[in-house]
Nucleic acid binder design. Structure first.
Lengths: 140, 140
DNA sequence: AACAATTTTTTTAATGATTCTAAAAAAATA
DNA sequence: TATTTTTTTAGAATCATTAAAAAAATTGTT
């Protein structure tokens, strides 16, 4: 059902978040919010957009990702110093990270039970809890 | 008891790990392995060394940290893209990270119970599991 | 539809963390 | 001691990211 009006959904998503549906934001959002959860880097999304025929500068991709994050449409995941990943799954959840091919996979929050964490300092507030299961390829 | 021969311990630590006890490695190791667990960045350790009167180039600090890590004397902790932290506590454990003052605190492994993690792919092997409790200051 | 006001995009340059390189210095080996 | 190997160094190079300034697009208002 999304075949007929491929843009209408992302337009709603953007305007709903108070963002102008510009050409480049629409193009990127179409790549990002295509139904399945995605984990992208700025560089990766940029080449993807380029390959799909869209001419968008890398700086704009950075801007867009940060804007979408601020608008609550993306989550930033930190798994390796060096580059940021953005996750279209904005619900609280955890990750498996393959350090060989830099691939991120979601772990359902409900599946995991985390107990015994220390109470945090009274002058601090909890932001979030990240669980990262780091794996490598066996053969390598 | 470490007052009398302040270098003997770190020399043993380095040679025991198969590393030559060079002047700069000794100086850095004295700062790192002074009894309590530490979390340092290359930049931070470099200024610390400079302040203590040692002339060590930043590149050497990077080299030394990576070498110590490879030798199993340090652990790299990834909490924010942008810069790496090195932890002198090489036992398996978790962290609290204050995103306002970039401060890392250890969480004892035994205190935490983590259950229900998905079984990893058969072609992959578990490297380690990181739990990062992200906090911010209340007032800010 | 046209207009001005505001936002976004773009290009280019700057930044910060880290690595690389090639030469000099130090340490180990013969 | 002479020679080989390893480390250190300073500076250049690189990578991801942000900043600044100008150009272009979008919006609400006539």
């Amino acid at each position: 059902m999304e075949k007929i009006r491929p843009y209408s959904n992302v337009i709603r998503t953007l305007t709903g978040a108070g963002l102008r549906p510009t050409r480049q934001r629409l193009a990127l959002s179409r790549l990002l919010f295509d139904g399945k959860n995605r984990h992208v880097t700025a560089e990766g999304l940029h080449t993807e957009a380029s390959l799909s025929g869209q001419k968008i500068s890398l700086a704009t991709v950075y801007n867009a990702l940060n804007t979408l994050k601020s608008a609550g449409l993306l989550q930033e995941i930190i798994v390796n110093s060096g580059c940021s990943y953005f996750d279209t799954n904005i619900t609280e959840h955890h990750h498996i990270f393959n350090e060989d091919n830099n691939e991120l996979t979601d772990i359902n929050l409900e599946d995991v039970q985390l107990k015994g964490l220390p109470s945090i300092n009274s002058c601090e507030k909890l932001e979030r809890i990240d669980v990262i299961v780091r794996v490598k390829n066996k053969n390598t």
